[in-house]
């Protein structure tokens, strides 16, 4: 399976929970209090509730519905609040995916050999924005190429979310001035507006 860029490191600080899409799979991406990043099937094994609505308690992600806890290490259920004295069987666990971070971008893939790192981004780039556009990847690439940002200091990463929705991650040359970053942000909005029109 392919590594997919699902967001920026700075958008998921410790204690934050986010929903992501990876090859059609609904996923939850979250960071524990101590900073461990995890990506799981966005579904509590108990009653099917989306874990992306849950909350972080220390090194656990808790489901919003009944507060069941799942540990950052392995996604095993560690607490069932309706029976606080019970040690949950370790067969109760979330389906974990691979996650990695490089150059300020969070990458997730559903399966694959664990030692394969996410694709290297060209050195000297800063993450600028990660945002959704209601269009296909091909149409966005086409729209961006039709009115290229000058100078050529932007790189675009695509993650298809649904047949007509794409998550776009934009990286900018680390040497870019703050004015250039502002202009690049505005350029992103212009591209979105034109492609969605």
């Amino acid at each position: 399976m392919t590594w997919r860029p699902v967001g920026l490191t700075r958008d998921v600080p410790a204690g934050r929970v986010m929903r992501a899409w990876v090859d059609g799979q609904d996923a939850v991406v979250w960071r524990s209090t101590r900073g461990v990043l995890s990506a799981w099937d966005n579904r509590c094994p108990h009653r099917g509730m989306a874990l992306s609505h849950g909350f972080v308690r220390g090194e656990d992600l808790a489901c919003l519905y009944h507060g069941w806890h799942y540990g950052a290490e392995g996604g095993v259920c560690s607490l069932i609040p309706s029976h606080p004295d019970l040690t949950p069987p370790d067969t109760i666990k979330t389906r974990a995916f691979q996650s990695a971070e490089s150059d300020g971008v969070i990458w997730v893939r559903l399966e694959g050999s664990p030692d394969l790192a996410p694709p290297a981004i060209a050195p000297g780039l800063d993450p600028l924005r990660s945002f959704e556009i209601r269009a296909r990847e091909g149409d966005i690439a086409h729209g961006a190429a039709a009115k290229p940002f000058e100078p050529a200091i932007l790189s675009l990463l695509f993650n298809p979310i649904a047949h007509d929705r794409t998550l776009v991650t934009v990286l900018i040359d680390a040497q870019a001035t703050s004015d250039q970053r502002k202009l690049a942000s505005r350029w992103c909005e212009d591209v979105r507006r034109e492609v969605e029109a």
């Binding site: 609904d26 966005n42 579904r43 094994p45 108990h46 009653r47 099917g48 509730m49 989306a50 609505h53 919003l64 519905y65 069932i80 309706s82 029976h83 019970l86 949950p88 109760i92």
Partner: peptide
């Protein structure tokens, strides 16, 4: 409603292996 509209699958699974129950 904020719970009910975010459960997957949408239909109620009758096979206990699909959603793990506890004593409560």
């Amino acid at each position: 409603r904020s719970i009910l509209e975010n459960q997957r699958p949408i239909k109620l699974p009758l096979d206990p292996r699909m959603e793990i129950p506890t004593r409560s």
